[in-house]
Amino acid sequence: MPILEVKDLHKSFGKTEVLKGINFKMEKGEIIAVLGSSGSGKTTLLRCINFLETATEGSIYVDGECIFDAADKTKISASEIRRRQLNFGLVFQSFNLFPQYTALENVMLAPKLLAKERADFSQNKKKIYDEIECNARNLLTRVGLGDKMGNYPCELSGGQQQRVSISRALALEPKVLFFDEPTSALDPELTNEILKVIKDLAQKNMTMIIVTHEIEFAKNVADRIIFMNEGVVLEDGTPHDVIENPKNKRTQEFLAKML
């Protein structure tokens, strides 16, 4: 069973249709890179799947469970939407760290708040918080920020901030982790830091969808590449198929410009 399935997803802003029927499936542990020029709908697709936008048509399934269906107009409670949302993690282009908290606090904030909903929270508060902190420390150490845990985001470089934000997303153990152009706000040197972290996650079999302009990276890391153009999927295949032998003329033009 696919871990994620997107069926015929459409999204319009007013009269502009940004997504014109997106379909794809992905298996557990798979890594998909989404390529395409600006305005092709890549970011909107990610935002629709992560409940930051509401798709106008279509449906989304996680492990066979329907978590979104535009045709179903029954009101879903806010807590149910949050539960569904937690299937996913999202790493933003602009990091969006919380400036008033240290790196460690940024990673622990959401797990601590979610822990309050656990039935055994009041008896085991101390133990639960200790586990959360231990986990957060491990995550930050893993991305090479063991010595920056007490620093505020403003004291960190862009690459370090992005690594904190990846740890923050991982702390909630999402089934699928999404990256929205994670390196677009970074210079080439810092870009490599982030790409290294993503490669490391790939080796640990994290299921990921990465919207990126780094074609070389997509080729090296992704199992599959989706090429989007004007709100539709033009290519969906292995990096070899899409990058070396693109079927579509538009893909060829795009790659010619990028490589």
Partner: peptide, 18 residues
């Protein structure tokens, strides 16, 4: 306050009040 702060909170499963 940038929209990204609200969105980051939302994708981390926080309630609007949180």
């Amino acid at each position: 306050i940038p929209k990204g702060q609200y969105e980051a909170g939302q994708v981390l499963g926080l309630t609007k009040t949180q």
